[in-house]
Write a protein that binds this DNA or RNA. Sequence first.
DNA 1: AGTTGACATTCTGTATACAGAATGTCAATC
DNA 2: GATTGACATTCTGTATACAGAATGTCAACT
Lengths: 195, 195
Amino acid sequence: MVTRDVTTRTRILGAATTLFARYGFKRTTMEDIATESGLSRASLYLQFRNKEDIFRALASDLQEQSLAAAEAALAEEGPLAERLQRAVEAKSLRMMEIAHGSPHGSELMDENHRLCGDVATQAEARFTSMLAGAFAEADGVGEVRLGDACVTATEAAEILLQSVTGLKRPGVELKVFRERLAALVRVLVAGLGAR
Amino acid sequence: MVTRDVTTRTRILGAATTLFARYGFKRTTMEDIATESGLSRASLYLQFRNKEDIFRALASDLQEQSLAAAEAALAEEGPLAERLQRAVEAKSLRMMEIAHGSPHGSELMDENHRLCGDVATQAEARFTSMLAGAFAEADGVGEVRLGDACVTATEAAEILLQSVTGLKRPGVELKVFRERLAALVRVLVAGLGAR
DNA sequence: AGTTGACATTCTGTATACAGAATGTCAATC
DNA sequence: GATTGACATTCTGTATACAGAATGTCAACT
């Protein structure tokens, strides 16, 4: 089996995760990945077209994972405001943890990255519409109360997500980020609590 | 008069503003600035130490102007929530207009810029403490209600400013930014309205 | 005095060369 | 069929050279 050997594929991705985190994409060689995963370099090319392909696969996995976590949070029982809060926290914290885990962690989710920018952008868009859908639930007629303001569901989702983006500054500690995120989300979705 | 010729100095800064906006710092030469301001290149060095000095002077002026505008907005009559909103809008819109005015507009306020990063960072810090002071007015004992949340005045200011930062994305139109900014600020400072 | 032409110096971009590293492929091997 | 050693090719980083541009200074000029 060439394209379906999940074990081998997973082993390669695991090795790549370790190495990309430690050295970054540029300074990690296929030889490194081969050694780390206990395969020959040539074998890597049976599972992935090239190094960029491995990187994109990792970026894609990461986004899928965090989107799935967010979706799960939204699907839980409970008031909408709380579910929104948990969804945003799940997604953001997953990303922040990885970004802070190593000096190269943010590469995988960089919207401006040559290799995975499209993946990140697309995931962002999916997350936006996921949240917009949740906001829309609160008010079927298209207008949503976000705190005191009154905007469309999509606008509400965009304002929420882009505000959160601002909190993700380099240099801000994870703990501080977590607190601010909680405060911000609580404030923004406060108006939804009553529904 | 060498260091006090305001007219000449202003003429140079005006020319530099035009040219830096059109070509950026790197691609603007002292010869360009001299021609544009109707002076000889050597004369420029009587007013400024070098090209970097001109750039920093512009960046500094910009920050001073927008901080002054924000401070004026805070000093107005009216409810605290409204004054905060106007202050943030004044500061942010001034910056966004310039950033969008030309492809090189954001250079002057880039916190990571080699030449003016410190100026931008310092201005940001001053703005934060300015807002923190305003928040503190609302509640003398250090804890501030920001929407539903309860945080210190400084934390409230930081959350507000960093959220706004997230709205300043490249590609977002000025009109959209203005609307989102208004909505966000309204929501965040809503809890202060009653005071 | 203020101003500037002209000079020496530094900076920038381009071209070339080259060695070692890294990549991607395929024929040979297990 | 799965795997890989070995090869041809491409990429990267470094060194050198050089011309034109740009910078910063100062003596000469008004």
